[in-house]
Design a protein around this nucleic acid. Structure first.
Length: 802
RNA sequence: GCCGGCGUGGCGGAACUGGCAGACGCGCAGGACUUAAAAUCCUGUUGUAGUGAUACAGUACCGGUUCGAUCCCGGUCGCCGGCACCA
């Protein structure tokens, strides 16, 4: 009898061996075929690793380990996305420098990941807060600045009226400050912006050439939000001036019975002397400014608004004077900040019109009475009440009205994107300093490359100042500098970059992490890019994933990287929920600590369980009993050692099963189907146990197949069984297609689609013979007239009877 | 409100391209071993009826297409996630 399975000793032992042998280091031998597998690097939070982390990490660890066995030079790196708000807040609260907090957290995370036996190349570990790293983050910003893609503008921030600090959206809960409960208002501040909108079309086009799961592509497309429509000028009655709107439905122009502008629209200021109810309008603006973006977009709520009394707009196609309203459902940040309202065919406009008694005119035929409900199913249909558009199909009407508008010079066809520019500055300490100075004479001037890195200075307090400036603003000796352009006095930018900055290019750094001359050498980039497989959370689909594609595409245009798209393949994992099916959180008391699982059951059990828990892309609930089941499986694998018999070949009764399992496991590992791969190995194990013996050759293959999931126990068994060398360095097993199929097939015999019998026939049986055999098997039940006989080779025989 | 996803035994889930629904695991029940328990091993396990072979029902609900639907189409309900009321 063998020793009992002691996971603690085994896991420690093999982790040490792998470290010593540098088993998983990516080499710089660029003649070998490469494979770059990437998982999103974690934010090293104070809570330590969550059981959600190992799910994607294990999945790509499986792929990475398998690829190495297939002869690839594999890069599977790990690092730390360590700038960010929670660390800063913790630092403020506990008066510990964020650098120290980060160091401690990273240490803990690294220990936890190491204990899980991942095949990361730790020599390439990176940290976004290292000066040597963020030097290059700043360098990329300088490139963007030089290219005119970084600019300053006034943008509203969330402002806590009591703490006197700017807040992230996340810190605003129901319109009040998360920590003090005081009301939050929108305060306008000058902010650095990145012109991601200039790349909207390229980012859209780039999706055509990559292998992203469909829902990721759809989300990105919707976020970029390309639409074809028109800008239309509405004259303001009695003025030279005009109000321009963007609409995707210029064909419905005859149905526009009023206009709505956003509370921030500049025309309110322009015409303040002519607005008769200016006080009411100002009050409304004040109300709107109190609402956070999210609140303003909170729905199903009563529409609010106020009419601009004293001003009217003119519908350019029929000359009708129509009222102008102010309402917060129109946002300054999309289109022109003004809309033409067509209440007959838009739900929001309809609700607004009903509430304020505005006219509703049907212009697309086909619905019920538009006075009763908006008729919005108008992608097709014929125009009515629309003068020269009457009777036209929607598509034709659109074309005709646009050419009419262009001819009369009152409008123009226009492509619009929902995508907004990226607000790139934060009034915070724990981020990359923005390498720009402001000079009275030269304006905003970039630091020369030679002055990088611009190090984050030590400060006394990490609290933002009470006028909303970053804590760096208080350091006058750091702030006051000289202009690199004219040599005169200048002030440094005191805002820092958002957390997204460091994570927008980290995958480039892994290819050559210690380079001091460039973000990475051209050779390394050429060899390793693109990332072959990138897995990450759905929550990063529209921000991180899009931002990093944007930076990468920009660097490609500047010839700094060799490929236009950074990631060839993108997949996404589901969340791990608590035992009760709810999100894990301290307040719900359903948090599972991965350390406990590793201690009690072992890293291999945790890895196996997280892969077996359910479909990789869907969320799954934690189950301690499920963990036990996986532990039991590994115990049974361990005990197989006692029944290993001589023989390097597969035994005759297992030959087909072995080839089938190799095929199944190999393809499942590639297709996010880790759960069924493990199920197949469990089934094979059951068969071995039933038989009571397993040949060395069978055990050998079985261990290799299981190794990517449970690397420690399989490596130990490999060595106990006396196999040569290291398991991790073996070749991935091959299968022969011909040996995966049985000589016979089982065919279901159906009558009218219902299975009545099963017949076993030779696999290459002729159609007629198969049908005859099928009929024979169900002859008692063939009581009616046979109308049709269907034979699907290898599957079914269906006899259709009347 | 919009966008995306999901709905299958007591539970987690499986089912290739429309072809035997419920693989694998958990739980449960019975048995073996044990003084006993735990662990382990064996057997059974969608429901209803039947001693049984079997029959009928069954993949959220209603309908459709098809020889055949968990899978495709139309509609309804519920749950989860995301959001920037996107004109």
């Amino acid at each position: 009898m063998s020793e009992p399975y002691n996971h603690r000793a085994i896991e420690q032992k093999w982790q040490n061996v792998w470290d010593e042998e540098k088993a998983f280091a990516a080499t710089d031998d660029y003649s070998k075929p490469k494979y770059y597998a990437l998982v999103e690097f974690p934010y090293p939070s104070g809570q330590g690793l969550h059981v959600g982390h190992p799910r994607p990490y294990t999945a790509l660890d499986i792929v990475a380990r398998k690829r190495r066995m297939q002869g690839y030079n594999v890069l599977y790196p790990m690092g730390w996305d360590a700038f960010g708000l929670p660390t800063e807040n913790y630092a403020i609260k506990n008066k510990i420098h964020p650098k120290i907090v980060t160091e401690n957290n990273v240490k803990r995370f690294k220990g936890q990941l190491h204990a899980l036996g991942y095949s990361f190349d730790w020599d390439r570990e990176i940290n976004t807060t290292d000066v040597d790293y963020y030097k290059w983050t700043q360098w990329i910003f300088l490139k963007l600045f030089e290219a005119g893609l970084a600019y300053k503008t006034e943008m509203p921030i969330n402002w806590c009226t009591s703490c006197k600090v700017g807040l992230a959206n996340e810190e605003v809960v129901n319109g009040v400050c998360e920590r003090c409960g005081a009301p939050v208002v929108r305060k306008v501040k000058s902010q650095w912006m990145l012109k991601i909108t200039e790349y909207a079309q390229k980012l859209l086009d780039g999706l055509e050439d990559v292998d992203f799961i469909e829902r990721v592509k759809v989300s990105q497309k919707n976020w970029i939000g390309k639409s074809q429509g028109a800008e239309v000028d509405f004259a303001i009655a009695g003025k030279e001036d005009k109000l321009t709107v963007y609409t995707t439905r210029p064909d419905t122009l005859f149905g526009a019975t009023y206009m709505v502008i956003s509370p921030e629209h500049p025309m309110i200021e322009t015409y303040k002397d002519e607005i008769k109810n200016l006080q009411a309008v100002k009050d409304y603006q004040e109300q709107a400014s109190r609402k956070s973006d999210f609140e303003r977009s909170e729905l199903a709520k009563e529409k609010t608004g106020v009419a601009l009394e004293g001003l009217k707009a003119v519908n350019p196609v029929n000359g009708c004077e129509i009222p102008i309203w102010v309402s917060d459902y129109v946002l300054m940040s999309y289109g022109t900040g003004a809309i033409m309202a067509v209440p007959a065919h838009d739900t929001r406009d309809w609700e607004f019109a009903k509430k304020f008694g505005l006219p509703i005119i049907e212009v697309v035929a086909g619905g019920e009475n538009v006075q009763e409900a908006a008729f919005t199913d108008v992608a097709t249909g014929r125009l009515v009440n629309s003068d020269f558009l009457n009777g036209l199909e929607v598509a034709e009407a659109k074309k005709k009205i646009i050419s009419f508008l262009e001819e009369k010079k009152i409008g123009t066809g226009k492509t619009n994107f929902k995508l907004r520019d990226w607000v790139f500055s934060r009034q915070r300490y724990w981020g990359e300093p923005i390498p720009v100075v402001h000079c009275e004479t030269c304006g905003y001037v970039a630091l020369p490359e030679s002055q990088l890195p611009l190090e984050l200075p030590e400060v006394e307090s990490y609290m933002p100042t009470d006028n909303g400036e970053s804590p760096l603003a208080a350091m006058t000796d750091w702030v006051n500098t000289t202009c690199p352009c004219c040599g005169g006095p200048a002030k440094r930018e005191t805002d820092t970059m958002p957390q997204w900055a460091g994570s927008s290019w980290y995958f480039l750094r892994y290819t050559d992490p210690h380079n001091t001359e460039a973000l990475a050498s051209p050779e390394a980039l050429k060899y390793w890019l693109p990332v072959d497989w990138y897995n990450g959370g759905m929550e990063h689909t529209t921000l991180h994933l899009l931002y990093s594609r944007f930076w990468h595409r920009f660097l490609y245009d500047k010839k700094e990287v060799p490929v236009p798209e950074p990631y060839q393949k993108r997949t996404s994992h589901g969340m791990i929920l608590g035992e009760n099916g709810e999100k894990m959180s301290k307040s719900r008391g359903n948090v599972v600590n991965p350390d406990d699982i590793v201690t009690d059951y072992g890293a291999d059990t945790l890895r196996t369980y997280e892969m077996f828990i359910g479909a990789f892309e869907l969320s799954a609930s934690w189950s301690e009993n499920g963990v036990k089941g996986c532990r039991r499986f590994l115990e049974r694998v361990w005990k197989l050692l006692d029944i290993v018999t001589e023989g390097d070949a597969y035994s005759s009764d297992f030959e087909i099963k072995m080839h089938q399992t190799i095929k199944k496991v190999s393809s499942d590992y590639e297709n996010l189907k880790y759960n069924t791969a493990i199920a197949a190995m469990m089934a094979l194990l059951n068969d071995f146990v039933k038989k009571g013996s397993i040949t060395r050759g069978e055990y050998r293959t079985f261990l290799i197949l299981l190794n990517p999931v449970a690397p420690h126990i399989t490596e130990e068994l490999w060595s106990l069984c006396g196999f040569e060398g290291r398991l991790y360095a073996q070749s991935w097993p091959q299968y022969e297609e011909a040996k995966t199929v049985e000589d016979t097939v089982e065919l279901a015999v159906q009558i009218n689609g219902k299975t009545r019998a099963v017949v076993t026939l030779a696999k290459n049986v002729e159609k007629d013979a198969a049908i005859a055999a099928g009929k024979e098997a169900v002859k008692d039940k063939l009581t009616g007239t046979i109308v049709k006989e269907i034979y699907v080779p290898g599957r079914i025989i269906n006899i259709v009877m009347k």
